[in-house]
């Protein structure tokens, strides 16, 4: 540490530094670490030995052709696959160091929220959709729920559009608004990780842009993993991008590298459309 004490100037600051001090790494800590994840639907192995790290407060995108395993892997991260019969997962998925595959599933899903391709608001009012997760988690106090609903809708960039019609049915909203409502619903329980499976595939470009801008804001609060078929979306949004093919993770690297100069031939073929 360099301290220039009074009347004793440091004459040669370099002398007190170790020679060729390594540049400090600014790589954020990993929120999620997958180790050797294998997943089977019955006898079909959908994921082969997936090991990767998801950095905290960053957006990680998974790309790859249909059936490559990217959505299966995403669903594994909040144990959504367990709702399917005859599936089997092995390996470790560490959420802040704890294997989430062995934690209480309700607790996992509160900490790791999910938004799906098709917006799926409940047949309830806008307000009740967002309040749902809080009530399931036993919160009853109106002031807390009111505050959380407003905060979540604000974070989902929807508050100004719905604040005067909170008691209207969610189905009255447009497609883009419904998807943002689903994001608000996921945010209400303050998840540590937000998983999004093709969240914009049914939306027009303007609604898509709103969601993308929203995700930029949200990464300050949470860690985001998004599956997308839209490579430009991954390129615009993600800090890190992983390419899946035939149930394997081919490459996961900084997004700029994946789209400018990928390390693997398979990735290059896919992002340039020479695949298959």
């Amino acid at each position: 540490m360099l301290v220039a004490t009074q009347g004793q100037p440091v004459l040669n600051p370099a002398a007190s530094l170790p020679a060729q001090a390594p540049a400090p790494k600014t790589q954020p800590a990993s929120k999620l670490i997958a180790r050797n994840i294998n997943f089977h639907y019955g006898s079909f192995q959908a994921l082969h030995d997936i090991s990767l790290e998801i950095p905290t407060h960053r957006i990680t995108a998974f790309i790859g052709p249909s059936g490559c395993g990217k959505s299966t892997f995403l669903r594994t991260m909040n144990r959504m696959n367990e709702t399917l019969r005859n599936t089997h997962v092995d390996g470790e998925l560490l959420l802040d160091g704890e294997n989430l595959l062995t934690l209480d599933v309700t607790d996992v899903r509160r900490r790791v929220g999910m938004v799906f391709q098709k917006s799926n608001p409940f047949a309830k009012t806008i307000f009740d959709n967002v309040a749902y997760g809080l009530r399931v988690n036993g919160i009853r106090k109106k002031s807390i729920i009111d505050e959380a609903v407003e905060r979540s809708l604000t974070h989902a960039a929807l508050w100004s559009e719905v604040k005067d019609k909170l008691q209207k049915p969610a189905s009255a909203l447009s497609g883009g608004q419904q998807q943002r409502l689903c994001i608000a619903r996921a945010l209400a329980v303050e998840p540590e990780v937000l998983l999004l499976d093709e969240p914009c595939s049914a939306l027009d470009p303007i609604a898509t842009l709103k969601i993308e801008e929203l995700l930029f804001q949200l990464k300050e609060m949470t860690t985001i993993v998004i599956v997308t078929h839209n490579m430009q979306q991954a390129a615009r949004l993600a800090d890190r991008t992983g390419f899946f093919l035939l149930g394997r993770l081919i490459e996961l690297d900084d997004t700029r590298r994946i789209f400018q100069n990928p390390g693997k031939k398979e990735t290059e073929d896919y992002v340039t459309g020479r695949f298959g």
Binding site: Q232, A235, F259, Q260, P262, V271, T272
Partner: peptide, 9 residues
Amino acid sequence: QAPLAIDLR
């Protein structure tokens, strides 16, 4: 065409 990777380069 929004080219990527080798095409972009």
